[in-house]
Design a protein around this nucleic acid. Structure first.
Ligand SMILES: [Zn+2]
Ligand SMILES: [Zn+2]
Length: 488
DNA sequence: GCGGTCGGACACTCAATTAC
DNA sequence: TAATTGAGTGTCCGACCGCA
């Protein structure tokens, strides 16, 4: 099963700050206007926490057209009909507890198990220090709801964001979209000349076809899109799943039919095949129906539970802020700084055309080449030009070959792992609280790592590195001066 | 049962890179 | 210079556990 992460549209490339999307109206149930099946108001009356913002009129009109004129793909403001049988809902707050997401519905009215459109979690720009310390949800108001609840209004302040590290060399990026599109077009021309071309996994000569265009654009940024089925869809062709485009990738089937067949209407194709001009779908592995409790599908599980009730009054105070920010940065900057140093050293080597081994020794130990008893190991430093021509990267693994993307491993489950008492130091006892009476924070978790252990590691790496660099001579360097290679 | 703890998934930002 | 990528950084979900 594929879990679809409904991404918001491409973020605003400008530095224009986004408008806060949370208002006092968030809790006003009157802002829900859409209707569910059988004319029931949707969301239900007690589902008041999730609503539309005033800037984005929510209710889809009864005629099924999209009221957002800006959403017209043609740009002429024509309303765009929603897909038959589907009602879009857009939240800017997470759904109620227990709501796992909307499931696309196929022509037959059955939920399509190949994907669950999971609502996207919305974060505040900056959590207050109290909420951040407790890893709890905050809001944009100051004092925030949680601080008010615990009587910490006075200490409810925005934290201070660290400045992002600059000056990193990142290596070549993956191929850009437009280039890929051109290649797809080229391929399409070729495939029509050769209609018998078959999809094969990892085939470099047969790139995946482009996903079908969504009939209407994604919801406004910062909102949670979902599609609501209104019973059995009408007959006739047409896309019924705009949120689950088929990208042709192995392992993801557009329909997820148990027998591997496809709904012909879904692709405007015939006999379970994609639309004309597109290659046949790759083989589909047997899917496993998601383990969902009865009523898990939203239009079956209606109504939803309401938001949690506000406790009557103040309760136990929340964790207080503990260690100053500078303490929390302890180890986190070293790798970045070292990466920068290594790059600087390597660039210097290119300019000076000196032995890269020397620059290796100038770089931070942790990023220098590790020792290797294998005599065939090489240290390669290429110029930017050479790197671009070979596709080689300096700081990160070459991930250019999309055809060799490994299957994505199953996502780990969120939250703490079950404690089996196996891990060192497992005592089932709470860790000591910070000196100021606050909770033990993450910064203090790290502090539990013996510092001598780190020092030993650094010393070990340094010593091993010294052995390498001392034994490299000019005779070890092969290749051109532009592209020196140290062969050992 | 409440609330603190905390591992880690995920949302967001923006510098680096690339295309035009 | 605009568009895009993708890594750095922060948020907060949710399981676990101590305590009243
Ligand atoms: Zn807060
Ligand atoms: Zn607060």
């Amino acid at each position: 099963m594929t879990e679809i992460d409904v991404k918001s549209p491409q973020q605003n490339p400008s530095d224009q700050p986004k408008q806060p999307d949370s208002t006092n109206q968030d809790h006003d149930p009157s802002h829900f206007a859409p209707q569910g099946p059988s004319g029931q108001p949707f969301p239900p009356p007690n589902f008041a926490f999730y609503t539309y913002p005033p800037s984005h009129p929510p209710p889809p009109p009864a005629d099924g057209t999209n009221p957002d004129s800006n959403a017209s793909p043609t740009g002429n403001g024509e309303p765009i009909p929603y897909p038959p049988g589907m009602y879009p809902y857009v939240y800017h707050q997470p759904p109620p507890p227990g709501f796992i997401g909307y499931m696309p519905v196929s022509m037959s009215g059955m939920p399509i198990p190949s994907a669950i459109i999971k609502p996207k979690r919305k974060q505040v720009k900056m959590a207050c220090t109290n909420c951040a310390a407790a890893c709890k949800r905050c809001d944009i108001n100051r004092p925030c709801e949680r601080c008010i609840k615990y009587g910490l209004s006075d200490s409810c302040h925005d934290g201070v964001r660290k400045e992002r590290k600059k000056g990193f060399k990142r290596g070549p990026y993956n191929k850009r979209k437009r280039q890929e599109e051109r290649e797809v077009q080229d391929w399409e021309g070729g495939s029509q000349a050769n209609p018998n071309a078959e999809w094969t996994p990892g085939s470099a000569t047969a790139p995946f076809p482009p996903p079908p265009q969504a009939p209407f654009p994604p919801p406004p940024e910062g909102y949670y899109p979902a599609f609501y089925a209104l019973g059995p869809p009408p007959p006739g062709p047409g896309p019924h799943l705009v949120a689950v485009p088929h990208n042709g990738a192995p392992g993801e089937h557009p329909d997820g039919q148990p027998d591997g067949t496809v709904d012909p209407n879904q692709h405007n194709g015939e006999n379970g095949q994609p639309p004309h001009g597109q290659p046949p779908f790759p083989p589909h592995p047997p899917f496993v129906y998601p383990h969902l409790p009865p009523g898990a599908y939203p239009h079956f599980g209606y109504p939803f539970p309401g938001p949690p009730q506000q406790p009557p009054s103040q309760q136990q105070p929340p964790p207080l802020q503990q260690s100053p920010p500078e303490q929390q940065q302890s180890h986190t900057t070293t790798v970045s700084q070292q990466g920068q140093a290594l790059e600087n050293a390597q660039e210097q080597a290119q300019q000076d055309q000196i032995s890269p081994a020397l620059t290796q020794s100038q770089a931070p130990q942790s990023l220098q080449q590790p020792p290797n008893n294998n005599n065939t190991s090489t240290i390669v430093i290429t110029s930017k030009k050479a790197r671009a021509s070979t596709g080689e990267e300096v700081l990160k693994e070459d991930d250019d070959d999309e055809d060799e993307d490994p299957p994505t491993p199953p996502k780990k489950k969120r939250g703490r792992r079950p404690s089996d008492g196996d891990w060192p130091g497992a005592t089932n006892k709470r860790k000591p609280k910070a000196e100021n009476g606050g909770p033990a924070r993450r910064s203090t978790r790290r502090a539990q790592v013996p510092s001598t252990q780190e020092e030993d590691l650094v010393a070990e790496l340094q010593s091993e590195h010294t052995q390498i660099t001392e034994t490299i001579t000019d005779q070890d360097i092969v290749g051109s001066s532009e592209n020196p290679v140290v062969q050992r």
